[in-house]
Design a binder for these strands. Sequence first.
DNA 1: AACTCGGGGCA
DNA 2: TGCCCAGAGTT
Length: 210
Amino acid sequence: MDKKEKVLEIIKRLDKIYPNVKTALNFNTPLDLLVATILSAQTTDVNVNKVTENLFKKYKTAYDYANASLEELEKDIKSINFYKNKAKYIKSLAKELIEKFNGEVPKTMEDLVSLPGVGRKTANIVLWNAFGINEGVAVDTHVKRLSKLLGLTENTDSDKIEQDLMKITPREYWGKLSHLLIMLGREICKAKSPQHKICPLNDICPSSGI
DNA sequence: AACTCGGGGCA
DNA sequence: TGCCCAGAGTT
């Protein structure tokens, strides 16, 4: 089974246990998701959803974030790690949305990654979940770890891993693959305690040991 | 490529 | 108490 066939098999199997997979971050609007995804860096989606439940009631548009003081925004996301950095990103990002994009969240990779605090991972999450656009593969720590464990990639650099995954995966599955691997990484193939026995990929995983 | 940012949950 | 967690920017 070559890598292209393997990816399709992985998607097929994971799709069965995670049907209609999508981001675990709660959101109503593209701006909500952009903010939530920035907040999610190096923390858990549970922590993010706890904060955004109230945050999104208070800040509904880019203008709301731009007009708020940095101190107030910091206070509203204080339970998130790196909250000072993230508050700064979100506030300046909101200004750029107003100046360059009429207050709307742009729908292209180029425009999204031009925003402060937004990298390819965040952009891919937003593009796929908010707009249904397959522009790339979202590579986070889970995808990074699993793509190597599964023998799909050998690189360690996130951008190279994304390129590798894009080459061997049909474009229509890029967004789905990202989230399937993230779910597998969170719930089954955990970094510290991989659950080989209940993993649907244990017979085709080089790292399974079963 | 290594380093910095660092709150909260859980063992 | 100590360790980890849906990254991105800077050096």
